[in-house]
């Protein structure tokens, strides 16, 4: 049996103006136009979106979960990046 693999697309939806697009899942489509049409039918049957991005899954570069520690460690010991690190005198009510 001959196989016709349509490529995989990752779908991102903006649920309303003012919010970012958010990943909702993936689907198969022959091309970008069809990916948008299919995404409309699969992921927005109840007005979940005002805008769709379809990205070929093969074009996404992802960080590797195995390197998670090496990649994110440097942020671990920098508590001074958070406002709670700094003690303020009680007299300062708002800062």
């Amino acid at each position: 049996m001959e196989k016709q693999h349509w490529p995989l697309w990752e779908i991102f939806i903006r649920s309303r103006q003012g919010l970012s697009h958010r990943h909702v899942g993936s689907l198969h489509a022959a091309d970008a136009e069809m990916a948008i049409e299919n995404a409309r039918d699969v992921y927005t049957r109840r007005q979940e979106g005002v805008s769709i991005w379809a990205v070929p899954a093969s074009e996404i570069t992802a960080s590797s979960p195995d390197e998670k520690d090496v990649l994110f460690d440097p942020a671990d010991d920098k508590v001074y990046r958070h406002p709670t690190f700094y003690d303020l005198p009680d007299e300062v009510k708002n800062m």
């Binding site: 196989k3 198969h28 039918d41 699969v42």
Partner: peptide, 30 residues
């Protein structure tokens, strides 16, 4: 019709989730 269309959608969400485990859609359907 809306209900049956939802079932199709549910099938697609799930095939998509299944594919993240490294299987091909066509093989799953086969």
């Amino acid at each position: 019709m809306a209900k049956v269309q939802d079932e199709a959608g549910h099938g697609l969400y799930l095939y998509s989730a299944c594919e993240t485990l490294g299987v091909q859609r066509d093989d799953t359907i086969a």
